[in-house]
Amino acid sequence: MASVDVPACPVCGELGVPILYGLPTRVAREAAAAGKVRLFGCVVPPEPDQWTCSQNHTWRAGDDETLIAAIDAAMGRG
Rank of each mutant, 00 (worst) to 15 (best):
A2E: 05
S3Q: 11
S3D: 03
S3W: 05
V4L: 14
V4W: 13
D5W: 00
P7G: 07
P10T: 10
V11S: 12
V11M: 13
C12P: 02
C12N: 09
C12L: 11
E14W: 03
E14S: 12
L15Y: 05
G16A: 04
V17Y: 07
V17I: 15
P18G: 00
I19N: 12
L20T: 00
L20Q: 01
Y21D: 01
G22I: 09
T25C: 07
R26W: 09
V27C: 07
A28M: 15
A28G: 10
A28E: 15
R29P: 07
E30W: 08
E30A: 12
A31I: 10
A32N: 09
A33L: 08
A34I: 01
G35K: 14
G35Q: 14
K36A: 08
V37A: 07
R38G: 04
F40I: 06
C42V: 15
V43T: 06
V43K: 10
V44L: 12
D49C: 06
Q50V: 05
W51I: 07
W51C: 10
W51D: 08
W51H: 01
W51R: 13
T52R: 14
C53L: 12
C53Y: 00
S54Q: 14
Q55K: 15
R60C: 11
A61D: 15
D64R: 09
E65Y: 01
T66P: 02
I68T: 00
A70P: 01
A70W: 03
I71G: 04
I71A: 09
D72V: 00
D72Q: 14
A73H: 04
A73F: 00
A74E: 08
M75N: 13
G76K: 10
G76Y: 02
G76M: 11
G78D: 05
G78M: 06
